[in-house]
């Protein structure tokens, strides 16, 4: 096992493709929590109650479904579908898969000089 400060260590840095994938992962988690909070809050506030018998006869419906199902389930569902358009076609990036040409994929074309010296502290980042 090499220590981080070993003198003959070859300089290297984190793969930008990995960093991009990690950013996308955080966006995915963000989308999950947004949809989760929306669905649970709206459903809980509008849906978890018992209406009076009078109200039950004159229910407010949207597109034929109960108000709470529309705002608590269908609306976030459609919003996520729209967000999926943004995520899939405008945010997420295409990348040459690692190792698709042996061990020297896309990054190989980069001039050697751009690779900064880095003693490995970025491992913990």
């Amino acid at each position: 096992m090499h220590g981080p400060s070993e003198p003959n260590e070859v300089a290297w840095e984190l793969d930008p493709q990995f960093l991009q994938a990690r950013r996308e992962m955080f966006v995915v988690l963000g989308m999950f929590f947004a949809s989760f909070v929306w669905t649970m809050t709206a459903s809980y506030l509008l849906g978890y109650r018992t209406p009076s018998p009078e109200e039950a006869k004159e229910l407010v419906l949207i597109w034929g479904m109960p108000l709470w199902v529309f705002w608590g389930v269908l609306a976030p569902w459609l919003a996520i579908d729209i967000a999926a358009v943004w995520f899939c076609f405008f945010y997420m990036q295409d990348e040459a898969p690692l190792g698709s040409e042996g061990m020297t994929p896309s990054g190989a074309a980069m001039p050697r000089a751009t690779i900064e010296t880095n003693d490995g502290s970025s491992i913990e980042s």
Partner: peptide
């Protein structure tokens, strides 16, 4: 509808959370 509601986000989480990196 609420019971199954998680499926709104299933494709994004199940495919995008791991997909690109796992494939690489």
């Amino acid at each position: 509808a609420l019971w199954i509601g998680g499926y709104m986000i299933v494709p994004i989480v199940a495919m995008a959370l791991l997909g690109k990196r796992l494939n690489q």
